[in-house]
Design a protein around this nucleic acid. Sequence first.
DNA 1: CAGGATACTGAACACTGTTCAGTAATTCAA
DNA 2: TTGAATTACTGAACAGTGTTCAGTATCCTG
Lengths: 204, 204
Amino acid sequence: MGVAERRAREKDDLKKKILNAAAELFVEEGFENVSMRKIADRIEYAPSTIYLHFRDKVDLVGSLCTTTFAELDQRLQEIQDLGLAPLETLRKSLRAYIDFGLEHPSHYAFVFCTPSSVFKAMAPEGQEQLWGCGMGSFERLRVGMGLCMDTGAIRRADVETVSQATWLMMHGITTGLIFEADFPFIDRETLIEHSLDRMLDSLR
Amino acid sequence: MGVAERRAREKDDLKKKILNAAAELFVEEGFENVSMRKIADRIEYAPSTIYLHFRDKVDLVGSLCTTTFAELDQRLQEIQDLGLAPLETLRKSLRAYIDFGLEHPSHYAFVFCTPSSVFKAMAPEGQEQLWGCGMGSFERLRVGMGLCMDTGAIRRADVETVSQATWLMMHGITTGLIFEADFPFIDRETLIEHSLDRMLDSLR
DNA sequence: CAGGATACTGAACACTGTTCAGTAATTCAA
DNA sequence: TTGAATTACTGAACAGTGTTCAGTATCCTG
């Protein structure tokens, strides 16, 4: 009775094929320029077939981003597992976050620079997954921040306030460097490291 | 021979009418949901008429944003004219910037969260104007920063580096609060003031 | 009043996301 | 080996988008 299994596998294969094609187009041309027809063309199926596997375009791209952001979570986990001093772990995590965003500008921009109204149309489960992914990463920041305070690496303050402000700044660096590519920024490495220095210094 | 003048005035009136209608729709529904047909409907003209006054949609919205961002520049000028201590001027300016962004989320998002490729299609003059507007504001930040160093209000450092990093952080606060409206942020006022405190403290 | 400039329009083109009736292929039961 | 039923997939259509352009209607000038 392996028929059902094979069928399910084939179904899943096509879903992955769609996601792959979409991912390619997404990084090649950005969200705005990805169309269902282009995706369908690339995998040689009719556009309507995609709708048998995804509720709509946002659901598809959202699913794509969930997968990619899981990678960020993994990277943060790995850094945490290194067992470094809390402040060092925190700094490496912040840096990893920024680097991740710059490596996946389309994904980052879609998740954080799309009006929330767009996501409201997503399937609740997909919405939950994407949201949970982001919240998981923020949770890591908050915990790391608390640890730094507990060990006296930074001065004691309201963890929530400090974490949120830190995320906002970090987000600004990422978003700014993604979209303002034409701005005459100084050397990117210098700019990021300087910003991190200041963000962490202000916590001491 | 006032005919030409009257005609020019009428032409300009219609242009303003278009801009007004677009501005309304822009704040009501955001960039994505503004369509040329909706604008045309609102002013009771055919969609094609708009193209007699604007090269394309980006040109129209860009023109809109240029006007709005001129207001920011004016606010910053006013703050500068108050003749306060350099550090106080700087802080008030940063705060004004954030407030401006939060008051005009659609404009801010369009200017800073739109792929630069989109602007490349704009008329060179409009592009120049919008760019100049943003650069003007940044110039103000840089000058203010330099003044703070000269008077010893903050420690001496590379003005360009410090200004760019500061803008990125400020931009993060603005963008983050605009798009992540669903995130359970703490009290907005507290969050902004705390962030400004830290940004400036790290410069002392 | 004729002729020319100007303002404006309607229809079309090529695209978009999305839906759904209908077809083709595959599997299962008799 | 058939017939029925489930499943997979498609083609055409709908309503929307930005944009173009031939053609009309209005106005101003000589």
